[in-house]
Design a binder for these strands. Structure first.
Lengths: 217, 217
DNA sequence: CCCTGTAATTATGTGTACATTAATAACTTT
DNA sequence: AAAGTTATTAATGTACACATAATTACAGGG
């Protein structure tokens, strides 16, 4: 990534590190270490960390540092409850605002998911999934809804990696079965401008993701 | 306010300035000027502004500065739609989690509202109202829900001041009639642990606030 | 008069030195 | 050996000087 703007560079780099599971819950993200790794001074790193904390992406202990928030079944339930409602609302709104161009975009993502069945790649699946959920949030045309959906999605995503590490794959592979099918139904509801159905399907989809993840608990 | 932690001091001071209508939409909040006004260096001010931007409270133009976001009927509808759903969810969750202590707290706020009818004060009303809405978000025991509710509330609050300035008082005084009554009904539903009713009442309450605000448009 | 290119201005963006403090380790005392 | 106390350490918190870029003002040519 180009380093035109160091603050943005630091911000996106750190997010990428987190989403790619470079840290585990409880790990501290030290300003000094990050600035060394990213080869820039503490100032932009510090700014980026401040943003991530403000967004609820990281927790912070004063005079100690920023760290990946602890995970717990209760915390997961909290974030997925919010996601369920926010994304349900987003899907309903998207069904109202959707353009032909948006529909084409969503079908393009479904095609990518289909292609991934032949050549499975967890990272690729994660990226398509992110595009799908955040794409619908964007189509809702409500910037606040989009913002909250993005944060909630990112936060909840830590759980996918975390539990995937500890409960080896079963749930994610399960999600790779039901996920794409539910995605298709959601896209169809949005295409048909059926707000209520789109909202309910999305709500159900997020809930399913949560339940599959915690099948072991 | 004590200046133990300058970053926090700057953050809260700036929020207070915004909520107390010290700026109007489009106004720039300059680091240099704020640091002069608050009598501290640019560093903590800059950090605080960064947080507020990350939270969606302020907009930012690169190399130009942070400014109060533009207002529009559409933007108001967006933020109030989200608030309606988030706070509805929060009220329902609060009805599940509420303790006797919480109930007492909420009734205390109702008493304060009652007292304000005899000695009206807009600022006092605004503060009690904030305590009510954010209090219920807190009682929900869901930190993500609380976080999003707080942001959405603050953002929507700019509208109250903004339109109150341009459409002089009528709507806010209207809200001072229906507001407290709806608040009481919500508290009662929460006290009775009636999740669905609490959620619906809160949703309706937020929507009423929005509609009263835009009675002129 | 307007358009365009350039210089001045102004505020943010960045690096760095230093202050502060929370956590920990070392040490004393009982 | 346990408990309390002090010193060290390692990271954040803060200030400030300077770099950079966007906006504005202005001058000159069409």
């Amino acid at each position: 990534m180009a380093k035109k703007n160091l603050e943005e560079f630091a911000y996106h780099s750190i997010i990428r590190l987190i989403l790619d599971n470079h840290f585990k819950p409880g790990d501290f993200l030290l300003e000094t270490q990050l600035s060394e790794d990213l080869e820039l001074s503490r100032t932009p790193v510090r700014h980026a960390l401040g943003q991530l904390v403000a967004e609820g992406f990281l927790d912070k202990k004063k005079k100690k540092g920023c760290f990946i928030p602890a995970v717990s079944p209760e915390d997961a339930r909290h974030i997925f409850t919010v996601r369920e409602n926010l994304e349900g609302l987003a899907a309903a709104s998207a069904a109202r605002q959707v353009t032909d161009r948006d529909v084409a975009f969503l079908y393009g993502l479904l095609d990518q998911e289909e292609a991934l069945k032949k050549a499975p790649s967890k990272l690729a699946y994660v990226h398509v999934n992110e595009s799908f959920h955040l794409g619908i949030a964007r189509i809702s045309q409500n910037k606040y809804l989009e913002q909250y959906c993005r944060h909630a999605f990112w936060r909840s995503h830590s759980y996918i990696f975390f539990f995937d590490n500890y409960y080896t794959g079963k749930l994610v592979s399960g999600n790779q079965e039901t996920g794409p099918r539910q995605h298709m139904e959601i896209v169809q509801a949005i295409e048909n401008r059926n707000e209520e159905k789109a909202g309910n399907l999305m709500k159900q989809h997020v809930r399913t993701t949560f339940e599959q993840m915690f099948v072991k608990l």
